[in-house]
Amino acid sequence: MIEIKGLHKYYGNHHVLKDINLDIGEPGIYAILGPNGSGKSTLLKSIIGLVNPRQGTISVNGISVAGTHAYRNEISYLPQIARFPDNLRVFELIRLIKEIRNEEADESELVNLFQVESDIRKRLRNLSGGTRQKVNMILGFLFDTPYLILDEPTISLDPVSLTKFRKIISEKKEQGKIIIYTTHIMNLVEELSDHIILLLEGRIIFKGGLKDIYGKTGSSSLENAISMLVDKNGK
């Protein structure tokens, strides 16, 4: 259960998140949508604790997260940009993350899935961008956590990996986990998501199920539905 109450965030004078209230308790896949700069990443980062809220509270499983770190044992996070220490090898990196989380996990399945067996002993600086993103995925899905937060997970994935990504997400959903992610790819949302949260200029202008958004706008395509909502709530 993730609860966000009255969350405000400023970067300098820029009011990035305005009075965000969210209850995420029901298992399923949550897509956070919105134009660039609408505050999607900031919202995710607030939950994971990378960003300190100006006002409001965030609690996970009923405990306020401010100033704590143990709750992140419950969360897996996949950052938007994957950059790792140049001189470590892939297996060293995986080992490092395990050490840091103090948690055992078996990466072999994921390594097989993304077909990076041959890269496992390479230094990270020698990997291609695509491979690096696969490594990022492996780290993101390595641990069995009730919550998964994925920031633009599909941004540089090739079609094959994208398919695998879908597969993992569906499996996780089957297992009753809560998956929150941001994306710009609407057919992915239509295919996978149970819930949609639409942000515009830091404010939630829509939250609800996929069907609700169609119902509310009378549109049959998600893309259109969102454009309509954005236009309606814009200046």
């Binding site: 994971i48 604790g49 990378l50 770190h69 143990a70 709750y71 992140r72 044992n73 969360i75 996070y77 950052p79 940009i81 994957a82 950059r83 790792f84 220490p85 140049d86 993350i97 840091i100 989380r101 103090n102 780290l139």
Partner: peptide
């Protein structure tokens, strides 16, 4: 500056800043 993004990844783990 070089390890900026990785720092972010690490901070998303259950660790103290």
């Amino acid at each position: 500056y070089n390890s900026r993004e990785f720092t972010e990844l690490l901070l998303a783990q259950p660790v103290r800043r």
